[in-house]
């Protein structure tokens, strides 16, 4: 069997013919394997879904219990045989429940990374490199200008701004799944134990994280009548809300945004951000390159972002690589500041 016979791109998503299944399909299919709960990877309406228990839970929170006709839990590290294919989920370190999916048949193993990161994050299980013949890597931050800084420094930036502007509310745009919870965890780890206020659109997923064993401290929903009292407090809301009337009714807000895109000044300014916080759910350039070396695959397929630069790096490193032009991804956890975000 050749790699593309085991897995190849189709308009509906990555298709595995010997098992008749799709990974993260963008259209409704009979059988879907889902890497993680971000909206561009996890869609409602499939016949059957195989995913980690957390991802299934997140899909149920977002789409309701009827998001699929039948569901099956994938245990990280456990192998499920579908048709002639062995399917194994491995942790991806991206958001709660996120997984890489390995498909293996006829002596060939392909690992689809979904989205992943290597940086420390206590809200999800750490990425594990899986040796394989073909590694399908994301490339959201696949340019050498993206080297995410230490998150402690970014949180220090936020806390020092709070100290300098105690009369102002600090409102932080952060995606509702993953980013918001990780940011809260980082703020807590820096020793901040005041209540953290959240937009109503974030409540359910924060509660889901807490029920999954990720304590986040005193979290309170922003109540319209109390908005004026939030001077000097931290408020977290979906990215689309930071320029809304909703945010402007907070007391003299400092507009912050937590994203890997905040590394680029023009991006931050475009969105009217006053306090860019470079905190990302995705591997940065160095970690993309490190991971490609770690998995040791002789062939790399690059998707989901800046494919060209990463393919170029692989070529320079003597690794066969090609871009995999998959449509429909990239609008999730770290959509560009002006991308479609809204509420989940």
């Amino acid at each position: 069997m050749r790699p593309h016979e085991l897995l190849h791109p189709t308009p509906a998503g990555l298709y595995c013919p010997p098992a008749d299944l799709y990974i993260d399909p963008v259209r409704p299919v009979a059988r879907a394997l889902i890497t993680h709960g971000h909206a561009d990877h996890a869609r409602a309406g499939h016949g059957a879904v195989l995913a980690t228990t957390e991802t299934l839970g997140i899909m149920a929170v977002r789409y309701g219990e009827g998001f699929t006709q039948s569901r099956q839990v994938a245990v990280l590290g456990g192998t499920v045989r579908i048709g002639a294919v062995d399917v194994t989920f491995h942790p991806a370190g991206h958001v709660l429940g996120s997984a890489q999916i390995a498909v293996e048949s006829g002596g060939i193993r392909i690992v689809a990374s979904g989205d992943y990161k290597r940086a420390a994050d206590r809200t999800c299980r750490a990425f594990e490199p899986v040796p394989c013949d073909v590694f399908i890597t994301e490339a959201t931050f696949g340019l050498p200008v993206f080297r995410h800084p230490d998150t402690a420094g970014e949180v220090a930036k936020l806390l020092s701004s709070l100290a300098l502007f105690p009369e102002r509310c600090h409102v932080i745009g952060a995606y509702a799944l993953g980013k918001a919870q990780r940011l809260i965890a980082l703020i807590r780890d820096a020793g901040y134990d005041r209540p953290i206020y959240v937009h109503g659109a974030m409540e359910k997923l924060i509660a889901f994280y807490e029920s999954s064993g990720v304590p986040l401290g005193d979290i309170r929903k922003v109540v319209a009548a109390e908005r004026k009292t939030l001077k000097g407090e931290i408020v977290i809301c979906p990215p689309s809300a930071i320029q809304d009337l909703w945010a402007r009714q907070l007391p003299d807000p400092v507009t912050a945004f937590a994203s890997g895109w905040m590394r680029i000044r023009a991006r931050a300014r475009q969105k009217g951000v006053e306090l860019p916080l470079i905190v990302s759910d995705h591997a940065d350039w160095n970690d993309l390159c490190t991971t490609i070396r770690d998995v040791g695959a002789p062939e790399i397929w690059v998707t989901h972002g800046q494919e060209d630069a990463l393919v170029r790096w692989c070529e320079m490193s003597g690794i066969r690589a090609r871009p995999l032009r998959l449509a429909g991804y990239g609008d999730d956890g770290e959509a560009e500041p002006d991308g479609p975000q809204a509420t989940p």
């Binding site: 340019l143 050498p144 200008v145 023009a266 800046q306 630069a309 170029r312 790096w313």
Partner: peptide, 11 residues
């Protein structure tokens, strides 16, 4: 080539 891609992106 990596510089050109990056400069083009950052501006």
């Amino acid at each position: 080539e990596l510089f050109a891609l990056s400069y083009d992106y950052v501006g």
